[in-house]
């Protein structure tokens, strides 16, 4: 399945609603380009089996995504990712915005000056990326099971 490629197993935390975590997973897939506009997505049951969740939860996630116009379902044909580019583009912005907002909320307690913070973020970000790329080249073969 496309949702599970690249060896990314989906783990759910138990404190956020599972259906919202599913929606977020889809948004991440879209924002990173692993899912494209108009692409057919798994059926409700396939998704439940894939993520090992209850079919009701899968149903609820799809309902939520339909309401957010992320996916469209016409008649009896399978659901697809929407073709409306403005929605797809807004997802990226939304994800970024959410993450940054959460980050700021927790960093504000430390009262660190913005310059120092940005510096630190840049350094950590580059280091993490470097680490990631060496890790992939080290063990590229086993990650696809």
């Amino acid at each position: 399945m496309h949702t599970n490629d690249g060896g990314t197993e989906v783990f759910f935390n138990n404190r956020d609603p599972v259906y919202l975590q599913v929606v977020r997973h889809f948004k991440e897939q879209i924002a990173t380009g692993r899912m494209e506009a108009g692409q057919v997505i798994p059926s409700r049951r396939e998704l439940a089996a894939l993520f090992k969740i209850n079919p009701n939860t899968a149903q609820r996630a799809y309902k939520e995504m339909e309401e957010q116009q992320l996916i469209v379902t016409e008649g009896n044909s399978p659901s697809r990712i929407t073709n409306q580019m403005e929605i797809l583009q807004s997802i990226r912005t939304e994800l970024l915005h959410d993450t940054v907002a959460a980050f700021i909320a927790s960093i504000r307690k430390i009262e660190v000056p913005i310059e120092e913070l940005l510096d630190l973020v840049e350094r950590e970000f580059n280091e993490a990326r470097l680490h990631e790329s060496t890790k992939i080249s080290d063990s590229g073969g086993d990650r696809n099971d």
Binding site: A49, K52, I53, N54, P55, N56, T57
Partner: peptide
């Protein structure tokens, strides 16, 4: 646990008991 994500369970009412819920938490309504 996989059975719970299939149409074997889908649509039915399931009542189960457990004393260690953690592992199966996301299967429950």
């Amino acid at each position: 646990a996989e059975v719970f994500s299939t149409d074997l369970i889908d649509g039915r009412g399931v009542l189960l008991t457990t004393h260690e819920v953690g592992e199966i938490e996301h299967l429950l309504d």
